Each structure stands twice: as structure tokens, then as C-alpha cells.
Amino acid sequence: MGHPHVARLMGVYEAEEKLSLVMERMTGGELFDRVVQKKVFTEEDAALSAWHMLRSVSYIHHEGVVRRDLKLENFLYDAPGSDFLKLIDFGLSKFYKGLKMNEALGTLRYTAPEVLHKDYSSGSCDLWSLGVIVLILLGGYMPFACETDAETMRAIVKGSYSMKPARWGHISKQGIDFVRRLLVVNPKERLTAKGALAHPWIRQRRGGLGDFVEGAELSIAQGFISFAKATRFRRACLQLMAWSLTFDERCQLRQAFVELSESHGGVVKKKDLGELLKDRICDMEGKPCPTLMEAVAMLDFGPNDEIRYSDFLAAMMACTDFDAREGVIRATFRRLDANGGGYISEKDLQGVLGEGADVRGIISELPTRHVIIARSPLTTRSLSKSSWHT
């Protein structure tokens, strides 16, 4: 999973009796703790939080994953004092496309009716859970919290909850409508993630990032031109290095990515990137820059031409001055040097890039003196030379 609103899995370590996951560090605390502290959110803060959560859900649904246990505790703020939320903990998640699910699981008070009926086949149950979360943010109470689990289950199945006048009298009609359209018993009538993102309550209160993108298009263009011209080996290295960006650098870049990917489930369509840059990056005669358009056309991001967050960060890294960032190069080398032998072998590359990667083809693009074979390994020094200079 690679999205600004999904916590990054950094590494996996397997022992005989234990599997350890290393996640991106999130220091801002849980959304649950923020609710305990604030009691209730303003509509502006609640809509911003809902927008963040919906973007993460829209992305995982686009990837064919249903979360099945969304709750306040599973959204974390990235830094103290920050309002930027990320989704964590995919322990109960499942690839759902083409499947009919019959497991009743998750945290009861957030669980959708169709999950309790053990009959669901899409990500609609995540939208019900988000409805519960947003009701808590705006109202300050849990909508389905009866004395016994049996009573709670009956209330959920019936969609029986109350909007207390004392808490909801000052909430806008759009805010109330948003919650009600998520807490619909029939999943076919419930808002989808895309529909929820387009709801007026979200669109009018989420704010805009257009000004940032207006000032960032030149850097984006330069990055994708450099990325398109790079060898496949350099691109692979950039993919690994992208997560070595500082927190502040990622904060700036992620805003541009979010704006570009807003309408496509958390990915950027190559044709949309081309259209955006074509209209804003021109040559001296005011015409679309041919070098830029050629670079965009050269990009290959799979059969659907979808640019994911890791691809976007890697492209932005392509126009960075790495000479001053030797530590990043060394960290990348250590990740590629899987067995710690001090050089990168063909087997090492295959292990990092995956079984489907054309490692021999990638190697063939390197200068002859850097071909990776057991008798002529790629060292840290040659990694620096071969990956940055094309």
C-alpha cells in the first residue's frame, strides 16, 4: 500500500515463531485520543478528518482491499499538533473483488449490518464504519452503544440510532445528511467512498490545494522528465530512496499528489498528469514543451497507466542533488545488499524488485563496468555512479 493517508510498511522480518513488521513512525497519537481531548469536533475539523479518512478508504478500495475494522483507534496523526491522518493496521483486511465474504468480524459498535448478516461483497462496510466515526466527531457519543452486545447488534441491523437535538441543533443540514447517507442499512443505497468525497459537506469544507500545485508544477515537470530518461536500475533505486525524504519534504510533495489523485481513488492517471503539465509548462513560444510531453509519453506505469505515491515520490527524487546525500545512497545500498556481502548480486536485485522484474534487462542497461555478476559486483561507490549518471 502506498498513499499519503496510509501508514507505510517499511520492512518485514521473519523468525521461526514471529513475524515483525516495521511501520512508518507516527508520533501524533490516535484519533481516539484527540476525541477524548476535544469531546466534539467543529464541523470544519470533522470534515477535514473525514476527508483524510475517505481518501485512505477510497485508495484501498481502488486496490481491491476492504478494511473491515475501521474505528477511531485505527487512524493516527503523523506528528504532534498535526491534523493529517493516516490509516493503520490491516490485520482484518481482505482482497474482496469477485469474492463474497461471510465473516462477521471487527469491533461491534462500528460493524455494518451486512457484516453481522455475514453477507457482503464490497467495501461498503467501511463506509458504515466511517459514518459511525463522523457521528462521534460531530455528536460526541457512540451511536450504537446498548447495554448488551445482543441489543447493540439489533440496533445496528435496524439502523436504529438517534441524533440528539442538544448535540445536533447547530450542525448544518449538509453535515447531518452526510452522516445519514453513510449509516444506511442497505449497502447498495449507502454512499461509496467516491460519492462521499463528492458530497457537498466534504467539498465545501475540505479546503483547496490548488495554490500549492500552481507553484509546484515546474518541479513536478522536472522530476518526471528526469525519471523518464533514467535507466530502469536508477528508477528502482529512486523507488527505494523515496522514503528517505525528510518529513517536511514529504509533507510538501504529498499535497501535490493528493490534489492530482483526488478523482482517481488515490492514484494519478498518466493522461491527467500530461494534461496538467501541458497547460502549465510551455516553451518560449507559449506552446506545450515537447521535451516534457515526450517524457510523459515515455513513462510506463503498467497497463492502467496509474502513477502511485511511491512512483510520484521517486520521480521527485530524480531531480534532487544526491551528491550531498551520501547517507541516502548507503541506506539504499544496504537494502539492495540483502545478504550483507558488500555487493549487490543479480539474486539480491531479484529479491528486492520481485519475481516479475526483468532483472537481466535492468542489468543490461548499466555501463559494462558495472554489470552485476559474482565476479564483478556492484559496490556502494559504483551504485552512486551508475544510478545517478545516465
Rank of each mutant, 00 (worst) to 15 (best):
V134S: 05
L72F: 01
N186V: 10
A221F: 13
D323G: 14
Q204M: 13
C251T: 11
G340Q: 04
L130V: 13
L209G: 07
G195L: 03
V12L: 12
N339V: 10
D272L: 13
A230Y: 02
W201N: 07
L31C: 01
L383W: 00
E249Q: 11
W168T: 03
E285I: 03
S364D: 10
E306F: 06
A155P: 05
H370Y: 15
K271D: 10
A256Q: 11
K188R: 14
V132I: 12
K194C: 09
A331V: 01
V258R: 06
G207N: 04
M1D: 06
G265V: 08
L245C: 08
K229L: 12
T111P: 03
A155C: 08
L313F: 06
M163P: 03
G340C: 00
K94P: 08
K188L: 11
R330F: 06
M298I: 04
A104R: 15
G123Y: 10
I88P: 00
G341M: 03
K86I: 04
E17L: 11
L197T: 14
K71S: 01
V268I: 15
P165E: 03
G223H: 09
A50M: 10
A230S: 12
K287R: 15
N102K: 15
R375W: 08
G91N: 01
Y13F: 14
L336I: 03
L238N: 00
V36D: 01
T231E: 06
A150Y: 11
L383D: 04
E30S: 06
G2C: 11
E259Y: 15
L21Q: 06
H170I: 00
A331W: 04
C237W: 11
R280I: 00
S364F: 09
L260I: 11
S263P: 07
C289F: 13
R235F: 06
I176R: 14
R254H: 12
I60R: 02
E63L: 13
P187R: 10
R308F: 09
R34G: 00
R235N: 06
T42M: 03
A216H: 13
I171L: 09
K173S: 07
L182F: 13
V359I: 15
K278V: 08
I136L: 10
K39D: 05
M142P: 05
I373K: 11
G123N: 06
F233H: 05
V185K: 15
M241S: 06
L72E: 04
E285L: 11
H264Y: 14
I281D: 04
A104D: 10
G91M: 06
H61C: 02
L31F: 05
A112G: 03
E306Y: 04
H62Y: 12
L9K: 03
G159P: 12
K347W: 08
E285N: 09
